[in-house]
């Protein structure tokens, strides 16, 4: 029973992180119909930005905020420099450019900071010791609560932005009917830039949350991107709520499989589950019922 509780809690924290990565992928997919494979690498880069600030003894909350701001900037730059010229070209091209970026950005991180793993402390010295419940320590710390809390705050903010602000309305309009939006005076290009910036911010958050759990290295986000992508596909690429649910489900699933069936079944089990779910719901759990795109 203790094991079950620990596996659940462990799965929840990792699941929240996968959800943040998935949210970034969903935002970009909705806006530009691109799977951004560079999402993880960009998040690694923003985490290194925070790490270099920490090296200079700058307040850890400032470093945390700096990583998020760096996410906004990197996302915007990526869209303007690398994606903008490719709209209207064969649809695989921007995807392959993000693969190129993934390779390039990880090399840049490796060139600047080396490939040695580094430990990153949680911001503000939030404790990583397990919370005591009765006489047992749970596999759940103040930092785990922080992980879940910050991902939920991010989700809520995004939801508010989309539903209740004019920027959100413009973003939705640009994503689903760019021509109409343009006619209505929306500066679609600028809106897409904002979309990429926000998505990369979500990734940057994931990077800052996972670094204290798995250490920082140029390839830190590779598995996160893989699981985040699986989570986004599971939840439905058009649905931010799906990203959250998909992320949590992936986290729990991988934790249970690893704990009960052994680590070599983690990916095998995850793959089978993904295939099973998609066989029933080909566009993910939260797919909007919609007509065939022509």
């Amino acid at each position: 029973m203790t094991l079950f509780i620990d596996l659940t809690l462990n799965g929840l924290s990792y699941g929240a992180i996968y959800a943040a990565v998935a949210l970034g992928l969903v935002l970009i997919w909705r806006a530009t119909r691109v799977i951004n494979f560079a999402q993880g690498a960009l998040a690694t880069l923003t985490t290194y930005v925070a790490a270099s600030l920490l090296d200079r003894s700058i307040n850890s909350w400032v470093a945390f905020a700096a990583a998020l701001v760096a996410g906004l900037v990197f996302g915007a730059v990526t869209e303007r420099v690398f994606m903008r010229p490719l709209y209207g070209k064969p649809e695989l091209n921007p995807v392959v450019v993000t693969i190129g970026l993934l390779i390039l950005v990880e090399s840049v991180a490796g060139a600047i900071w080396g490939s040695t793993d580094r430990g990153i402390a949680p911001p503000g010295g939030v404790s990583q010791s397990g919370i005591i419940l009765g006489h047992t320590y749970l596999d759940f710390s103040a930092f785990d609560i922080f992980i879940l809390g910050s991902v939920i705050v991010l989700m809520v903010l995004m939801l508010v932005l989309f539903r209740w602000t004019s920027l959100g309305l413009k973003m939705r309009a640009s994503a689903f009917a760019p021509e109409v939006a343009r006619l209505l005076g929306v500066r679609v290009g600028r809106i897409l830039t904002v979309g990429w910036a926000l998505a990369t911010l979500a990734g940057a958050l994931a990077g800052m949350l996972v670094a204290p759990l798995v250490f920082l290295s140029p390839n830190m986000m590779d598995p996160m991107l893989v699981y985040g992508f699986a989570a986004a596909v599971l939840g439905g690429l058009d649905s931010p709520v799906g990203a959250l649910v998909g992320g949590i489900l992936s986290g729990l699933g991988i934790s249970y499989i690893g704990g009960y069936l052994g680590s070599s079944m983690e990916t095998v089990g995850a793959a089978l589950l993904l295939i099973a779910v998609l066989s029933i719901r080909p566009e993910g759990l939260f797919a909007a019922a919609k007509a065939r795109r022509v």
Binding site: V226, A230, L237, A270, A271, L274, I275
Partner: peptide
């Protein structure tokens, strides 16, 4: 979605 399954 197919990319996701094949990746897995």
């Amino acid at each position: 979605y197919l990319a996701g399954v094949t990746l897995a």
